[in-house]
Nucleic acid binder design. Structure first.
Lengths: 199, 199
DNA sequence: TGCCGCATGTACCGTGTGGTACATGAAGCC
DNA sequence: GGCTTCATGTACCACACGGTACATGCGGCA
């Protein structure tokens, strides 16, 4: 068979639906088992298709990986967008809420995948490189806005935002590595004290 | 040939010397090219031996990886131990010096390898798992000691140390991902201001 | 010299991989 | 009913991998 493959960009046919469904299942599997030694056969067996079908729908493993990374990034952003902040919240409490969401054990697989992708991206693995570009810039803009809104001058706001992002990432890595939730939470509280002042 | 392989633990024969020499070359190569898709053949070709020899000296690829990780961790610790601090230095200046050392571009490959190994370790890859154990604990002790020495009570010292470690890691990841040295340095300065107070 | 032990190379094996050719079978359409 | 179209499965290919068997050659040593 030709397998003359379908639309180059996103379409809305049943075919695109099936693609989306497969990539969702793939991201679930990858978040649980890692992306490093993913094989089309193993993935297919796990999500109930033959590896032949994965090639059929995505053209190549490389393309599949690209889609997986894209979807994983989208999920990461969704974590933030699902966070509904009540208007009356202090900045420190808003940060606490965000931290609690990020460290939800149900997200652990996704967070592990994030750090795994960072490792691959730092090595120039093409499907993961886009992660690097969004790694800081994507998150900086809203954080800077929050800082400016809280009264910081733009230069300081940028530094503070970048610092906050880095600290959250570092503590998240600590948490995933050690599992010491109490210890990491305490360190985060210490940070919030330094960052927003006591009380 | 039998290849009845040599000492189970470190010895001092010429054989152990050759092993050490090979693993040093291997770490160099891995720091430059990543460990994810390392193959015995590729590594052998890069460092001038046949893949047969790597099996001969290390027994298996897995054992080689273990040695590579061990040596890479030792190098990481050496970065710290080579740092000679003059006694008169303020804590903030000592931190600045450490930061400058850690972000030396010549260490970039090593730092990338560190994050790459974190990713593998978080997935339970056996050769990398030891990284997780030392990831926080190894560094916490000296940092806590420094904090206590600077007058913090033990509980606060622990939180501050953990926070400092996480922030450094997060900013290091930012630097490797974006290459924006000036931006990351500014964020670090902001952190030092919060952490040690102005001036 | 003749032997031996060890380091190294070459050729090979079985396996798992990404990817392809071809078969099959069900749905739609005239 | 006969035809096409498409999704899916099966069988296969070439390749690179980790690992092994065997050959070769060099240094010490009696």
């Amino acid at each position: 068979m030709d397998d003359s493959h379908p639309e180059g960009e996103a379409g809305q046919g049943a075919l695109a639906d099936r693609r989306a469904q497969l990539v969702e299942a793939a991201v679930d599997h990858v978040a649980a088992h890692g992306i490093a030694d993913l094989s089309l056969r193993g993935l297919g067996a796990a999500i109930g298709v033959s590896h032949r079908m994965l090639i059929h729908y995505f053209g190549s493993k490389e393309q599949l990986l690209v889609e997986i990374v894209r979807t994983s990034e989208r999920r990461q952003r969704d974590v933030l967008s699902r966070l509904r902040l009540e208007p009356g919240l202090s900045p420190a409490d808003a940060a606490r809420l965000l931290w609690r969401h990020l460290t939800d054990p149900r997200l652990a697989g996704q967070e592990r995948l994030f750090f795994e992708l960072c490792g691959h991206a730092l090595r120039g693995r093409p499907e993961a490189v886009p992660v690097l570009e969004g790694l800081v810039t994507d998150w900086l803009e809203p954080l800077v806005a929050a800082e400016v809104g809280a009264g910081a001058d733009p230069a300081t706001a940028r530094n503070r935002a970048r610092l906050g992002l880095a600290t959250v990432r570092g503590l998240l890595l600590d948490l995933l590595a050690t599992g010491d939730r109490a210890g990491v939470d305490s360190a985060m509280e210490e940070f919030l004290r330094l960052y927003y002042g006591p009380e």
